[in-house]
Nucleic acid binder design. Structure first.
Length: 423
RNA sequence: GCGGUCGUGGCGAAGUGGCUAACGCAUCGGAUUGUGGCUCCGACAUUCGUGGGUUCGAUUCCCAUCGAUCGCCCCA
């Protein structure tokens, strides 16, 4: 036997039993989105690499080492999408949604994303994100709506112990002034910082503040906060977002050191965390991206959004022992007593299915005993038996599995009878 | 890219440098010749991720490799 081909690393087969959970989660999310008036958008799984270089940021880890680039015959340089926002914004521009009737545009997506990383708990190479984007409004109420939507979804699943970490990373100008002040503090201690932070100083000094290394934390504990460098408008925006959140009763924690890993964020940045789901505690991340649409070649439009990992949501539910209801079992199993009855059984099963009854039969020529075991395993509510005498009389034996009661009924009346018994 | 742990039948899991590689679940057959969920009996790994080495002999020791998993980094 030759060696078999295995599933690519960091991907998973969603098997029966698991898929139903995903469907439940997706349905619930779609339902809530409808109530918030968000419409679904589906964009390609791959895009021009350039979209991600410009959209996500060339210096980010996601782009520098995690992008799956595609070999193609043509000139196009393509890549699998590592996140959803860039594609949605590209589509917004290309489909001229800035001119659409509904403004702002409120969109959501749910689907697979790809990042080349070492897999671990709650992290895969092909993973699934649900995310929303609101494009065309600067209103702080939209920031608060987006954050609350994420929270309400988690709450709808029954998750508790979540915290919203929020910050404002300001505008490009705000950051410029902050950056200068920050470098005045960082450069003198450059050599004492960890290796990662030394390279962060040049790429994005803001991220040094987010380092988990204790020594770096100590060295930077008096570093200027971005919040001190916000313009009056940015300050006003931020405080209004916070007051809206308070109005909704959503607790938050202002974390001046919170930095998002993608470059496009401006002003509001937030994360939703849950302790104890393994090493990764961030369930959701998002923020405002007022410069992104213009950066990608569109008419300047403000935007805000978030994304969360479906796998992480499932992991979080598991950690909190929240059961996902999964419907199992079929209505009727048709057991074949004699090979002569097979054709009749086959037709019967088809009739039941057409009548809206879920039905199954034996395809392995098993004995009655084994067929009843199969019916049991399928959690069949009823089992129908067709044997020689039933075949001769054009009847079937209908057995209710829970009670063990059985009766002989005309084959033509089975579907009707079962329908009424099942309703 | 770096580090820890692990890799035995469909699944879970014991085990030892050398007798037929435990056991549990599942599956199949029988006790019950047209009927399940309980019980009892029986069957089911020329083989211990893969390749190489040490050895009279390796699933057990060594090396490599692949994979899984957890963690670092980063992120959802």
């Amino acid at each position: 036997m030759s060696s078999s081909i295995k599933i690519p690393r960091g991907t998973q087969d969603l098997m029966p039993g698991q898929v139903e959970k995903w469907q439940y989660v997706e349905n619930k999310i779609r339902d809530i989105c409808a109530r918030y008036n968000y419409d679904e958008i589906r964009t390609p799984l791959f895009e021009q690499v350039e979209l991600f270089l410009r959209g996500v940021g060339e210096t980010t880890d996601v782009v520098q080492k995690e992008i799956y680039r595609l070999e193609t015959k043509g000139e196009e340089k393509l890549a699998l999408r590592p996140e959803g926002t860039a594609g949605v914004v590209r589509s917004f521009i290309e489909k001229k949604l800035y001119g659409a009737a509904n403004q702002p545009q409120k969109l959501f997506y749910i689907g697979p994303m790809y990042r080349y990383e070492r897999p671990q708990a709650g992290r895969f190479r092909q993973f699934h994100q649900f995310g929303v984007e609101v494009i065309g409004a600067t209103d702080p109420a939209v920031d608060a709506e987006v954050i609350s939507l994420a929270m309400r979804i988690y709450q709808a699943f029954g998750l508790t112990g979540l915290s919203v970490e929020i910050n404002s990373v300001g505008t490009i100008e705000d950051r410029k002034s902050h950056r200068a002040a920050l470098l005045d503090v960082l450069n003198p201690v450059r050599e004492e910082l960890c290796e990662d932070c030394r390279s962060r100083i040049d790429r994005n000094p803001l991220r040094v503040l987010d380092c988990k290394n204790n020594k770096c934390q100590t060295l930077t504990k008096d570093a200027p906060s971005i919040l001190e460098h916000l313009s009056d408008e940015s300050k006003e925006h931020f405080s209004t977002v916070l007051s809206y959140l308070e109005g909704l009763g959503i607790p938050y924690n202002v974390n001046p050191r919170l930095v998002r890993g993608l470059d496009y964020y401006t002003r509001t940045a937030f994360e939703i965390k849950m302790a104890e789901i393994g090493a990764v505690e961030t369930l959701c991340g998002g923020g405002r991206y007022n410069g992104l649409v213009a950066e990608l070649g569109g008419e300047d439009s403000p935007g805000i959004g978030f994304a969360f990992g479906v796998e992480r949501l499932l992991l979080a539910l598991e950690k909190q022992n929240i059961e996902i209801p999964v419907a199992t079992g079929i209505d009727c199993y048709v057991a074949i007593q004699t090979p002569d009855a097979k054709g009749q059984a086959f037709v019967l099963v088809d009739q039941l299915r057409q009548a809206g009854i879920s039905a199954e039969m034996d395809y392995l020529d098993r004995k009655m005993k084994a067929q009843f075991k199969a019916a049991d395993r399928l959690e069949a509510k009823f089992t129908v038996v067709i044997g020689e005498s039933e075949l001769a009389n054009n009847t079937v034996v209908l057995k209710e599995m829970a009670t063990g009661e059985q009766q002989e009924v005309p084959a033509t009346e089975l579907a009707g009878l079962l329908s009424s018994k099942l309703s």
